[in-house]
Amino acid sequence: MNLKKIYKYGSPPNFYRFAMKLEPWCLSLGLFLIAIGSIGGLFVAPKDYQMGDAFRIIYFHVPSAYLSMSAYAAMGIASIIGIVWRSNVAFAVAKSIAPFGALMTAVALITGMLWGKPMWGTAWVWDARLTSEFILLLLYFGYITLHATIKEQKKADRAASLLAILGIINLPIIHYSVVWWNTLHQASTISKLDSPSIVGEMLWPLLLMIIGYMIFFIGVICRGGSAEVLMREKRSNWVKEV
């Protein structure tokens, strides 16, 4: 691995230029996929044999739940890079992921309640899956609070990153909670890639939604991360040009 190259591309001005170029593409492609996926999920996909139309909530619940976890993984990895390589850009990216991840977690919980109420007969239970996803929300809040309350930037970065890194352990717990323990929540439908437990005409809108959310997420982080980099670098020369 050529470290010099990595340092060069990970430098703030390069990151900034790259992110700002990438952002509009991600946003438009992401929103396009989400639009197609929504139409497919709401209007084209057939009703479920048991849940009827209520099953369509899957097209909004699963992508947000998926992103709540992937965003956390990204935040954890960025935090590790930040601490190990003392990379300011990595810290900035991690910090800009937190509000997005927290919002996605909240959406996953809310859409889950809206789905659970008519189908399970309850909006909330403290089973292993719901509880561990709730802990994910608390981890995001903890990260955001640490950044908000510690004034000195370097200390805040280190404390919040440490929390983010330790919280990574929660991700496999969320994922396997439905396997390890009896839960009210059902097992995953599409993590078994060889034979997803859903028919093709219901699956494609779901995949489009997930990919669309992912690309949209990258776009948002390009914008939010750039903003954070600018604030951190406001005294350096390259910033004056933008």
Binding site: P46, Y49, Q50, G121, T189, I198, V199
Partner: peptide, 18 residues
């Protein structure tokens, strides 16, 4: 005092189920 329905992870339209 409470009855909850557990759903499995399979989704399909009625005709395929039949």
């Amino acid at each position: 005092t409470e009855v909850l329905a557990k759903h499995d992870e399979n989704y399909m339209p009625p005709d395929i189920h039949a």
